[in-house]
């Protein structure tokens, strides 16, 4: 199906190479069954938007991909590395998968530049000078090169989120996960973050975004996935997903968010 979608949207290319594979994934929080039999294959270059009502398990799903949450059944394979209890595998996957959080999670005791260079220096063993050069390039790309020496607490929410995106990009990840990146932002700052994400999508990055920004989904997604009650209810290209939803639950959800 991913290939068919890609053909429909020739402006962005999706390769045959499988990036993430989830097979029959289940997860429980105590007694609560949050993820039920999730099957998902993400190809290199795909831009996937995950949506659904709160508590539907969409955040948990992407947090399983870099093992911030542990799945209890099924298999998750990221870039040919299976996530198990093996710490080596987990660290390897995390090096290749960037994540942007709702609340940014920048390190408040480090300057913007230090936030960006920390992982390249300590995880990738990159020389400091090279890491700083790279960091400045990415700050340029998210359009805040002048904030390099400030602390996160001195920036606006939108600027902080762009720093967070740049911080992930500095690790040169193969996949980017976005967990409601604009939900904690003031309305006038949402666009500056979305613009950066759109540009990133156009550059061919494989992305999975949990978001309620349906405009974003229409613009860049090649697949929109609707989740409810821990299950994937529907997955389709944005055109068909928005204009011709198949299930009643999807229709209800869309009618609620697209007033």
């Amino acid at each position: 199906m991913a290939n068919a979608t890609a053909a429909a949207r020739s402006d962005m290319d999706v390769s045959d190479e499988v990036m993430i594979q989830m097979q029959g994934v289940h997860k429980w929080f105590g007694q609560f069954h949050v993820l039920k039999n999730i099957d998902l294959t993400v190809h290199k270059g795909e831009r996937i938007v995950l949506c659904g009502p709160s508590g539907s398990g969409k955040s948990t799903l992407i947090r399983c991909i870099n093992r911030l949450e542990e799945h209890q059944r099924g298999r998750i394979i990221v870039d040919n590395v299976e996530l198990t209890h093996d710490l080596k595998n987990i660290e390897q996957v995390r090096r290749e998968v960037g994540m942007v959080f709702q609340h940014f999670n920048l390190f408040p005791h480090l300057t913007v530049l230090e936030n960006l260079t920390l992982a390249p220096i300590w995880v990738r063993k990159m020389p400091r000078a090279e890491a700083e050069k790279l960091a400045r390039q990415y700050l340029e790309r998210v359009r805040i090169p002048e904030q390099a020496d400030k602390y996160p607490g001195q920036l606006s929410g939108g600027q902080q989120q762009r720093v967070a995106i740049a911080r992930s990009l500095c690790m040169n990840p193969k996949v980017m996960l976005f967990d409601e990146p604009t939900s904690a932002l003031d309305p006038e700052m949402i666009k500056e973050v979305l613009d950066v994400m759109i540009e990133l999508a156009r550059s061919g990055m494989t992305m999975i975004c949990v978001t309620h920004e349906m405009g974003f989904a229409r613009t860049v997604a090649n697949r929109v996935i609707f989740m409810d009650g821990g299950e994937i209810i529907e997955a389709n290209d944005p055109e068909r997903f928005f204009n011709n939803p198949q299930s009643d639950r999807t229709k209800l959800f869309l009618s609620q968010i697209l007033h």
Binding site: L68, R94, R95, F104, N105, F107, W122, V123
Partner: peptide
């Protein structure tokens, strides 16, 4: 918790996360 998650998501292991992110803030 977000500080731990931010550090882990970047691929820092326990000791680097503790030494570079958690302790400097906690001690301060």
């Amino acid at each position: 918790r977000g500080q731990y998650e931010g550090a882990m998501a970047l691929g820092l292991n326990y000791w680097k996360m503790t030494g570079l992110i958690i302790l400097p803030q906690a001690l301060r």
